[in-house]
């Protein structure tokens, strides 16, 4: 009895080895995709390794506070995208999405101009992980907590 391994246990070991190998393969593939699977470049990536001027890329980051300016023609907007390490000025002509505003995330599709300004053909707003009711948006965190405690 003791020199035979039960088929059930043999299967358990084989399947466990297969599962570990699978997870390892999946992690390796995900690791290899690290740079390619990113949807956009951060301003720091653009600063470190600027893409060729005619290559279409996406730039993502935070719209810096107070940086949105409308040009004289009324449809072109200029703003600065930053990630805390680098800043890239962006110019966009068209209608921006509702969630596009200063202090929130944005993904701009376009090309890097010769003068270092990013010329965007399209803007996507990026929502963050915070969900806050409209009535509480101007409160500080402590005020909001107090308001919530009152209503409960």
């Amino acid at each position: 009895m003791s020199e035979f391994v039960k088929p059930k246990h043999q299967r358990l070991v084989l399947v466990l080895i297969a599962v570990v190998a699978l997870i390892g393969a999946g992690l390796l593939a995900a690791w290899a995709l690290r740079s390619q699977a990113s949807y956009f470049y951060l301003p720091a990536d653009i600063a470190a390794d600027p893409p060729a001027p005619d290559r279409a890329v996406r730039l993502g980051g935070m719209v810096e506070g107070g940086s949105i300016k409308t040009a004289a023609d009324g449809v072109t907007i200029q703003f600065v995208v930053g990630d805390g390490k680098a800043r890239v000025p962006v110019s966009f002509k068209g209608i921006a999405p509702d969630l596009f505003q200063e202090g929130s995330g944005v993904v701009a599709e376009g090309k890097l101009g010769a003068d270092g300004t990013f010329i965007a053909d399209n803007l996507l707003a990026k929502h963050d992980e915070k969900y806050v009711p409209r009535e509480m948006k101007d409160m500080t965190e402590a005020q909001a907590r107090a308001a919530v405690a009152e209503t409960q």
């Binding site: 690290r34 699977a37 990113s38 949807y39 956009f40 993502g60 929502h127 992980e129 915070k130």
Partner: peptide
């Protein structure tokens, strides 16, 4: 996916 790669989708809330 939202933690490893820059993505348009927000990270878990």
């Amino acid at each position: 996916s939202v933690l490893w790669w820059n993505s348009l989708h927000q990270p878990p809330s």
